[in-house]
Amino acid sequence: MRKLIALGVALCLTAQLCRGGADEDTRLTLERTIDKGVAILKNKAISDQDKLKAFDTLLSQNCHTELMAMLSLGRAGWTALDKKERDEFVKAFLGVITRSYYNKLSQVDVSHVAVDYLDNIKLSDTRRMIRTVMKNSGEGFKVDYKFALRDKSWAIYDIEVEGISLIASYRSQFDDFIKSSSASALLNELKNNNRRFEAEAVPQ
């Protein structure tokens, strides 16, 4: 279960992502990014609602959200949606990711989180992977950040914690859902879930 927590924490720590040039070292960018993410999380002047909004904005600006959404949906699902639905799906999937780390974030004291950088691996000309160990209260988790190059900037498209891939996990569920229903129904399901969460998250 702790690995799943780490998945959420890793995601939130990397909300501010690599927008540097193509030749800029991804590790330095990630280090800078994590520092900024931790700073936001430690800021007690920001309410949980504001943190949620802040990270939603950072993710939408800096994650490769379109690629993440496409990969989570897969070829069959993506092509079944029209242009408007695809845009909506990207937005809805961003909401899912935001909710995912927001939930876990409230469970973790980020002041005890430290990151050790292990490797920076070139997967291809347009893909990189940075391997890290994230330590939370003494316990270490292997966290791999996968980057895609687009428009001369690096952006994360997947995070793997102890081998558990964020995208692959959603892909399995979405595949099952589409088999028994449709990609459009999945889109509606995600939108409804996001709306319900937003309603519940509003302070009374």
Partner: peptide, 23 residues
Amino acid sequence: FYEGIKEEQLDVYRFLQDAYEQN
């Protein structure tokens, strides 16, 4: 943490099995 998973996953059973096998 489990409560969080229940809230954010479409199919909790499938997610747990899938995450287990990946790990």
